[in-house]
Structures are given as structure tokens and as C-alpha cells.
Nucleic acid binder design. Structure first.
Lengths: 161, 161
DNA sequence: TATTGTTATACTCTATAACTATA
DNA sequence: TATAGTTATAGAGTATAACAATA
């Protein structure tokens, strides 16, 4: 009868995170949580041969046909050079197309192919199912609040510059 | 379900994140927010010659004297091999010590030096000040809810395995 | 045989400067 | 001159296998 109680948390039991740490380590919990989501996402997307970045790019292109690379990079919060290889990969696998923009021949309009849309649907269904498990026990209200807090932090970004 | 509120958001105004995306892209907003926090943290810690990882390790060692490397790695949610270089750096700068544990001579007990504790205090004060700016306009209740949601997601982690 | 810390290594993600072709 | 996309490259962060010393 020693440890019959279910132990939901085997990790944090050892290390004490002091109040000081909690106050000054906003990034601490967020990083741990982000790691959980990212590693789960990685596993979930593996069967589709997608990573978090390629999946995010694909879903944004599917939902925003004609998107330009610079816009996509901004939406994904990555630098333009780093997006190139991602778009390259999606294009090579014929999941998206790079269409030249007539009015501005420097730019590309990104569009998903039929195969891209189909893969996107299958992958996002799998991701949604996994997320249900990750979000178990969290009320819709709490989730809404969390998203709003994150958006507010993002809005405050330039306050610190 | 549609979001009709047109926001004066400079970044997101171009790209529409559909409801489907919002549901299946939990990682999307969290990554953006985490990027904000991490890049702000990076700038804030630069004067102290610390990065997010070295800062987190230092503050956890200061708050948990005698911590072992494997425990610290678990707390930081990184693999043990990746922690070695971090501890190496902190030790080389004489901010922490590696003390052999008498009862288990395989392990090290990590302890902060006086210099380490002082640097930690100065750095965490700077971080706390910056965080106040990032958290402007967010109620304590909302923040509490957010932290609880993140912890719940972490608890749900093994549900998905 | 298992665990602590370590080395080596490979892969992904990120950041910056400089280039090309268009505007 | 400025912008969209590109190339090249360097630096972080991460993940895995294999090893020595100790349990």
C-alpha cells in the first residue's frame, strides 16, 4: 500500500521552483509546455512525412491561397531565408505551387495542389485528435483565456524594444 | 463561428487563420508567443552573458542547492547530454560548482557560488522588469488560468503516448 | 545489469549578410 | 533606391547511441 495513489506528476516532484522563479521564469513553464506540444506534434505528423514547420506552412497556404512567401514568413514568425527550404520541400513534393504574380513579377503566389489539400486534411484531422487528448480536462473558457493572454503578450512585444 | 472583429493588428491582418487552423494549430499561437518571450529574454540576458538555457539552469541550481544533473535535465526538459555543455559553461565561469556526492560517487551535487547567486539576482531582477512590460494589460486571474492550462497540458503529456 | 555523467554526432531551427531580378 | 526571393553560412538547440565509472 505504499504508492497506490496515481501519480500524475513524476517530474516536478524533485525540483522546487521558487516563487521568485515563477515570477521571473515565464519562459520556463511555457517552454516545457511548448516542448510537449511540439514533440507530440512531431510524432503525430511523422506518418505524413511532415514537420511542425512544413505542416504549419501547408495549412496556412491551404487556408490562404495566393499567399506570398514574405507574408507566410511573417505569419510563421520566421525569417524569409528560412522559409525558402520549407517552401522548396513542399513544392518538390508537389503539395504546393509557386505561381508568379502578374502584377509583381518578383513575388510568388503560393497555392496548394489537390494533393496538398488532401494531405493537409488528413494531417490536421490527426493533429486535432491528438490535441483533444492534450487538452483533456481544460474548459473552453480557460482555453480561450489562455489564447487571449498569449495574443496580448504578442501585442506587447514592441513595448519592450 | 467566425471571427468578424477586424483588429488593428499589423501582422495578422494579411493572413487569415481559419477556425480549422485555430483548432488544429495549438502550437501555432504558442510558438509565436514563445518566440516573443524567448527573443525578449535573449536581449534581456545579453548584458549578463547568459542565454535562456544557462539562465534557467543557474536559477534552478540557486533555488535547489545539491541538485543532480539528471534532475536538472529533467526539470529543464532537455536530454542529459545537452545539459553537460551548459553546466560546463556555468562551472568554467565559476558561477556553480560540481560537488561529488559521497553516497553516490557517480553523481554531482550542483551548487551555486556566491558569484553565481549574485549574478542570478541581478539577472532575475532584469527579467522580472521586462516581464512586467510583456504582461501589461493581463489580469492576475487570466495569468493564473494560463499557467494552470499549461500545467494541465504537461500533465496530459503521457496520455498521448 | 542499471545508472550518472560524458563524448561524439547528426539533424533541425534560427539569424545575418549579400546576391538576383524585378519594381 | 527599395523590395521579393534566394544563397551561403554560422550558431544555437535537440536527439540518439555508445562509453567509463560507479552502483
Amino acid at each position: 500500500m505504499k504508492k497506490t495513489a496515481p501519480e500524475p506528476d513524476t517530474e516536478n516532484s524533485v525540483v522546487t521552483v521558487s516563487d521568485r522563479s515563477l515570477r521571473t521564469l515565464l519562459g520556463y513553464q511555457m517552454k516545457r509546455t511548448f516542448n510537449v506540444i511540439q514533440s507530440d506534434l512531431t510524432k503525430t505528423l511523422k506518418p505524413f512525412d511532415l514537420r511542425m514547420l512544413t505542416y504549419t506552412a501547408l495549412i496556412l497556404i491551404v487556408d490562404n491561397p495566393g499567399l506570398r512567401q514574405s507574408q507566410l514568413a511573417e505569419a510563421m514568425d520566421i525569417e524569409r531565408p528560412n522559409l525558402v527550404v520549407i517552401v522548396d520541400e513542399l513544392e518538390r513534393r508537389e503539395l504546393i505551387l509557386r505561381d508568379r504574380v502578374e502584377s509583381d513579377r518578383r513575388a510568388y503566389a503560393l497555392k496548394a495542389t489537390l494533393a496538398g489539400r488532401r494531405l493537409c486534411e488528413k494531417a490536421s484531422a490527426a493533429v486535432a485528435a491528438h490535441e483533444q487528448l492534450l487538452l483533456k480536462g481544460i474548459s473552453p473558457d480557460a482555453l480561450t483565456t489562455t489564447v487571449k493572454v498569449m495574443q496580448q503578450i504578442e501585442t506587447n512585444r514592441h513595448r519592450t524594444a
